[in-house]
Amino acid sequence: MRIALIHEWFTTIAGSEKVVEQILHLYPQADVFAVYADPETVKTTAFLQGHRIESSFISKLPRANKSYRSYLPLMPLAVEQFDLSAYDIVISSAHAVCKGVLTGPDQLHISYMHSPIRYAWDLQHQYLRESGLVNGLKAWLAKWLLHKIRIWDYRTAAGVDHFVANSRFIGRRIHKVYGRKSDVIYPPVDVAAFDFCEQKQDYYLTASRLVPYKRMDLIVQAFAQMPTKKLVVIGDGPDMPKLRALATPNVTLLGYQSFEALKHYMQQARAFVFAAEEDFGITPVEAQACGTPVIAYGTGGSRETVVDSPDPTKATGIWFAEQSVDSLVSAIERFESLPSPISPQVCRQHAERFSIERFRGEFSEYVNQRWVEFRESIG
């Protein structure tokens, strides 16, 4: 099988790139296409070595290395310029435009969806508010561009033979936006890199990029109301000054930390606190791999990665219902008053459901089955 893999951009190695890494492990012969590929990232990323990598004309535009996202209006055009006619199977790793690549009737297109374009669909209004694009000429231009992208995005869904969602939550978003069914294959989490630890210390942990939608401010404010409980915050970003202003003596802001330091704190925390609405959310799974329970905002991917159950053989954490200080405080109080503590062993066993090995097995079997069905359908 001649296989092409297309991804939006290679600039940092985050959750969606971890999916690409494992797909390329399964298909080392695959050629790689990207709307934008940062040369330094490509050069220093081990799993991209040995692959033919082709990027679009976006990479040649002025200041693309710093402002590639500003070329979003041109990206639908860019992704349609890739000539993939020589390939039997096209796999798109999509959270923006790359599922719109052009394929023919004798090619199988499987799109692994991290999400439909969030800022063009249900999160448009939040995106515009956070970007200061509510009123004025620039705001109306942005709204018009997003409107045009929605039309293009919906139309190009017809070119996908099979959608794979990274969670049931994203599966519902795919159905809402495109009117298409999808199959769920959870993304790979490197569970083996997080050592199990049964003994816990008396502090809570949260770790994330410090950006608005992660709601780290909510977590810090909640612990400001609970001065006897300790919170450790790991991460850096534009919200750091805001968190410093909110932090009370029981809150320790550590900023960016190495992987080993993060793992150490994660292993020994009483619980990991997570307040974002995520499509999947890898960090709560990593915490559970350490044997650490999770207190999470009970929506999005957290409802699939964290188990809030009265059954102690299943429970791995607590959900809170609203992104509010009162709701989080109540969840922490409920966590501390559980009749029996959440089992670290149960947390670890649950995390192993999301392992790299599980992803490889499920994804390769899925592609093989769809390929056999496709070949039979075209005779």
Rank of each mutant, 00 (worst) to 15 (best):
L218A: 10
D38H: 15
I342N: 00
L210S: 06
K314V: 12
F169A: 05
E376D: 12
N65L: 13
R334A: 13
I295D: 05
D38C: 03
A321H: 08
D308K: 01
Y265T: 10
L5T: 04
A276I: 06
I151D: 11
G255K: 05
E17S: 02
V160M: 06
D31W: 12
R172Q: 15
V325Y: 02
G300K: 02
F280T: 00
V251A: 05
I170Q: 03
L262T: 10
P241M: 11
Y256Q: 11
A276L: 07
L26H: 06
V35T: 13
A331R: 03
P116T: 13
Y203R: 13
D311H: 04
I185C: 04
S208C: 13
I110V: 15
T44W: 04
V191C: 08
I295R: 00
S208A: 15
F363S: 02
S324W: 06
Q369P: 00
G379N: 12
E40R: 04
C98Y: 02
V164T: 05
S258P: 10
L328Q: 00
I219D: 00
L253Q: 06
E365R: 15
I234K: 05
S324Q: 10
A321N: 14
F274C: 06
L231Q: 04
T228G: 08
A64Y: 02
Q369F: 09
F354E: 03
I6D: 02
L145E: 15
R155K: 15
M240P: 02
G50F: 05
V134N: 09
L133W: 03
Q199D: 00
D326C: 11
T41I: 01
Y203K: 13
H125C: 11
R172N: 14
R215K: 15
P238Q: 15
G50Y: 02
K18N: 11
F320E: 01
Q49F: 03
Q288K: 09
L146K: 08
A351R: 09
S355F: 07
L133T: 08
P284A: 08
L74I: 02
